[in-house]
């Protein structure tokens, strides 16, 4: 069985934050096509503050997730602050008492995060939001483990599911949030929230994969 330990995996969260900061211009450019053009700016501001607080400190994964969740909820605002804030806080709560994270614990974490996001937003699959990356990613991870694939293979499936879901938003018409006012004019463009969510999930999965150990 493959697993990784909670206690020395806090650096995964720093890596996620750094990926978002690196994608500042990319995310704002996508947002400029159907939104305000500030998605990357606001995300980079919040994740950048979190990176400052996380850098150079060895923390458990769950503790680092708490730091990120708190920063997003208290410092970013907009829609993405609360949505990603409750998602990361949900991840953290789900892992708080977990010492060794196996595929089942990882899946529980993903489910908790999704439930938290859906508890404050009203988006469903197909509404052209971050849910369109998140839900298929979770589904792919879950399907992989169900058919007996190892944790590492399931993480690859998670990444592929997230990115396929992200790309599916190109053909969708926005049903919720600011882009929904565009109606048909929102078709043909990636959803910025789905794009940032795919970056987060890829970075999370890659970080976990790099730490996996095989235990008897």
């Amino acid at each position: 069985m493959q697993q990784f330990s909670n206690s020395d995996s806090g650096d995964i969260v720093l890596a996620i934050a750094q990926r978002i900061v690196e994608n500042r211009v990319h995310l704002s450019d996508i947002d400029g096509l159907i939104g305000d053009g500030d998605h990357g700016v606001n995300m980079a501001k919040g994740f950048g503050i979190a990176a400052e607080r996380l850098r150079g400190k060895a923390r458990p994964l769950s503790a680092s997730l708490t730091v990120l969740g708190d920063v997003l909820m208290t410092e970013i605002g907009g829609s993405m602050g609360p949505l990603y804030g409750v998602m990361f806080s949900g991840f953290a709560e789900s892992l708080n008492d977990v010492v060794e994270i196996d595929a089942a614990a990882f899946e529980r974490m993903l489910r908790t995060g999704l439930a938290e996001v859906q508890s404050i937003g009203d988006a469903k699959v197909g509404d052209k939001t971050l849910i369109d990356s998140y839900a298929p990613a979770l589904e792919a991870f879950s399907a992989a483990t169900a058919k007996g694939d190892g944790f590492a293979t399931a993480l690859d499936a998670l990444i592929a599911g997230a990115e396929k879901g992200r790309d599916s938003t190109i053909e969708l018409v926005a049903k919720i949030g600011r882009a929904s006012r565009l109606g048909e004019r929102s078709r043909g463009v990636l959803d910025p929230g789905a794009a940032s969510c795919a970056i987060i999930l890829r970075s999370l999965a890659e970080g976990a994969k790099a730490k996996l150990r095989v235990v008897p």
Partner: peptide
Amino acid sequence: EIFSSPTA
């Protein structure tokens, strides 16, 4: 922030 909701 500019054109962005205040935090909770």
